[in-house]
Design a protein around this nucleic acid. Structure first.
Lengths: 241, 241
DNA sequence: CGAAAAAATATGTCTAGACTTAATTTCGCG
DNA sequence: CGCGAAATTAAGTCTAGACATATTTTTTCG
């Protein structure tokens, strides 16, 4: 009736059954649930299958599991949500719009102090600083303000970001090991407003992302979405249709 | 030096090794990587262990796997990030502040049309509408504007939200099966500004969340964070210290 | 040649059993 | 009674082998 079921499997069925028991109040917050061996008998499966099912629920934050202590319903069922950060172009084209982008500025600049701290680099280190706007059907969709660390992205010097899309170049050439990201909101500056075709002061959703690899920080970027844009979570894991 | 390593295991080691090969460019975007059986031989482990490792990377979005077709490096390595939405009180107390909250309004109201669509209910259906402010050390931290569906939350009628924390009551009494959430930004209304001790027009980070169970939509809430607040992702999975 | 049928193959999932490890419980001793 | 050592327990992980299930590739036949 709504979404395609996430494919069945014994493990998923068991996870679902346990989830329902918790929701139905059969097992209550803080309670210990039967151990894997007992559940394996009840559901007539191998213990490994029960383990997989309970791991899923623990990853969601619904269960707390500890060796020897057993599995308990989380006292404060913190819930985790997964957001997918796709390549801008993909996003725009996926929405059926024609993609284009424009590089507004690009030059080697000394790193400001606030970013230096975030990147764990010395203030004043020269990084490539660039700004670009991404358009869908000619309308600005998002604005990126990016600092690139040549030391951590070999080949960067040769890349021509006036023509290429930095986001895409990075995704293809400088995969990262770790990423920090955070959502916040800011009032549009005059520059933001001009580039996004809106008015100064307009509330903008901001995504800041910093990525790292073995060689150090690769890049930090501030993405400002066009007014009204929302970033939503994806449903559990959906297998291909 | 940075974060505690996410605990070792053969599966995680293999995932890490594969990730590094991709990052090092040994295997390139779109390429097929060796199949599970070969990797199992190479790493001298059982195939199930390789399967687990590759599943992890596929969940992250780094790999694309298909039966018979094999495993390929994702062409557009979409990356997924997990955000944890904790209970406000927990969050505030965790930050070392004294928690308090105040219910600003609560009454049965007919559901507005825009929310009716989101909730898949008939417009005008009477739901409980409430607004509350959450404080840390007396300063407003977030503002919630919530609509509750008594039909999906048995026991709601008896709950006293003038004293209890709705967020917490819900978490403890109306666990959900599905949640939609989305981040956006809005300029503070006069009411937002008054309740959050800020000025109208100030950019606010907004989180909208709607939860569902078998009986239908349970609640939909608009959370406005205090100006400057950012919501960050958590690092991969961190086991307890 | 082209379409339908058959074979091959890589991942998906499960099982039974074993060993490891963190934590709790029990026990023995001063 | 208090404390530390030892036993116990439940989850964490791995293995070897099996079967299921999408797909792709090959073969067969009209």
């Amino acid at each position: 009736m709504t979404a395609p079921p996430p494919a069945a499997s014994k493990a998923r069925d068991i996870a679902e059954a346990v989830r329902r028991r918790i929701i139905a109040g059969e097992w209550r917050q803080g309670d210990r649930i039967p151990d894997e061996a007992d559940l394996a008998v009840e559901f007539a499966v191998a213990r490994a299958t029960v383990n997989k099912a309970l791991q899923m629920l623990a990853d969601e934050g619904l269960l707390d599991r500890r060796r020897r202590a057993g599995t308990r319903i989380a006292i404060d069922p913190v819930r985790r949500a997964t957001f997918t950060i796709a390549i801008v172009r993909e996003q725009i084209e996926h929405a059926g719009m024609a993609y284009s982008h424009r590089v507004v500025a690009q030059r080697l600049s000394p790193l400001p102090a606030d970013l230096a701290e975030r990147l764990d680099l010395a203030p004043g280190t020269p990084l490539v600083h660039m700004r670009a706007v991404h358009y869908g059907d000619g309308q600005p969709i998002q604005l990126e303000d990016r600092w690139l660390n040549p030391a951590a992205a070999p080949g960067l010097a040769g890349a021509d970001f006036w023509r290429l899309n930095a986001n895409e170049w990075l995704v293809r050439n400088a995969l990262y090991l770790r990423a920090d990201l955070a959502f916040s909101a800011e009032n549009a500056s005059h520059r933001d407003a001009r580039l996004l075709h809106t008015t100064p002061g307009q509330a903008l959703l901001i995504l800041r992302r910093t990525t790292w690899n073995d060689l150090g920080p690769i890049t930090t970027v501030r993405v400002a979405f066009r007014p009204g844009h929302a970033v939503a979570n994806e449903e559990p894991r959906r297998r291909r249709p």
